[in-house]
Nucleic acid binder design. Structure first.
Lengths: 236, 236
DNA sequence: GGCTAGTGTTTGATTCGTCAAACATTGTAT
DNA sequence: ATACAATGTTTGACGAATCAAACACTAGCC
């Protein structure tokens, strides 16, 4: 079983790879996410390669092997099942479960995770809308596109929130912006780099485009417009 | 916050100290419980003393300071609340929760533990009958005496099982020997170093004296006898 | 095509927790 | 009282994970 630091690097490479689309992760970004210096990340990445969990070329980035991807999916599954359990069964606030799961994910057995998953009715997503890998390590592709790509008049459904910061999550929940919510785009203010949206019949709130880019949605009804519809070019 | 190894040493010193009655623990026994060589235990104990968690004299054993006792009680509280939660809420087998709690106890936050404790109605003991320290680190004295100190005809109530081995616990549960059970001593076989007992109306089972010494009970009704009643001289 | 800014790598050192094995102390038995 | 068995301590080494800082490479710009 991989050590706790190794599990964290695997998780980080996995999400950087998903984000880049190519599966490739740069050592610098990896170091930043894990919270170590780049030299440390380099030597860890060399070790992962030596152990067959990743492939790596000097100055050429890192990517997971199938074995590495499987190990990463296991950690992510533990994390997300724990988050769902802490919210649904224990009644913790969704804004604070991330941190707790971040530590528990390395200590919990596969048996217990499966038991919790069963108690929850094998949910497909965690409280933030992130898909939960199954016990075989199969991860459904995330899907959806950033709220920031839509325009005034569009109606969308919130799929997931790609942000784990407790204060951000608390603000969003306060405005009704939780997975499943139906959202109307009221206006965009390109000058202010912001947009105004409302969830259901809640009051309208303003979001920076940076925040809106981390709210992943699917279209429900788009206002007629010229030109092409927004694509899944989820550059952030 | 103490590291995971440090927490394990503190826990071990705490229980060795309670067992000896004097609060004193020998380095050799400590090393055996933690599962390291005695040299390793020596250097760790020196470190605990340096950090004010224990007092230590060369060749003179180790004992916890108030701060060390408090830190140990915190770990033990986390462990026992987790065991209770895993059995009562998650429905795990009491024989297998020890191992799981052994890992989770180092990862779980005080907040979550308090939430779980609240869900359980702030129980006083875990599924094995061990007392749960309160959030202020106050541990009730364990009490009771070993089943092995009783004789044919005595009736006792099971308070706790001082054994965490899953196979032992499964055997005991199968015979109805769980905390709260009322037990009749059927006979003692000093020659065979064993005794026969029954729980309630279940069938009679045989226990080695070693096993019986780890089953802690309180007297309900003693058969008349000459000489003094058994004392709490719980030598094992 | 060569320089440079930005990335990435290497090196040497540190801390933690550990072991094996040499060594020291204590207390007990004769 | 002495020697010895049991227990405890010290020493030197190691692997994991980390950092800081010196160094190497790549790619984009002019």
């Amino acid at each position: 079983m991989p050590s706790e630091p190794v599990e964290n690097y695997l998780k980080a490479i996995f999400s950087l790879g998903a984000e880049s689309g190519t599966g490739q992760a740069s050592v610098g970004r990896l170091a930043a996410i894990v919270g170590v210096t780049s030299g440390t990340a380099t030597s860890m990445v060399r070790r992962l390669a030596r152990e067959g969990l990743a492939t790596y070329r000097r100055y050429g980035g890192v990517r997971l092997t199938p074995r590495g991807r499987r190990a990463a999916a296991d950690v992510i599954r533990r994390h997300r099942v724990l988050e769902a359990f802490l919210v649904s069964v224990v009644g913790m606030d969704w804004a604070e479960v991330h941190e707790e799961a971040e530590r528990l994910e390395h200590a919990v057995s596969a048996r217990l995770i499966d038991r919790l998953d069963q108690m929850l009715g094998r949910p497909r997503a965690d409280p933030h809308g992130d898909p939960i890998p199954d016990a075989q390590g199969v991860v459904l592709p995330a899907g959806g596109m950033p709220l920031g790509a839509f325009r005034a008049g569009d109606q969308v459904r919130l799929i997931r929130i790609a942000d784990q910061r407790a204060d951000v999550l608390r603000f969003l929940a306060g405005a009704g912006l939780v997975p499943g919510a139906s959202i109307t785009v009221r206006s965009t203010q390109p000058g202010a780099d912001a947009m105004a949206v409302r969830a259901g019949r809640r009051s309208t709130v303003s979001l920076s485009m940076a925040a809106a880019s981390r709210i992943i949605v699917e279209p429900l009804q788009l206002r007629a417009r010229p030109g092409p519809t927004p694509r899944q070019s989820a550059r952030r």
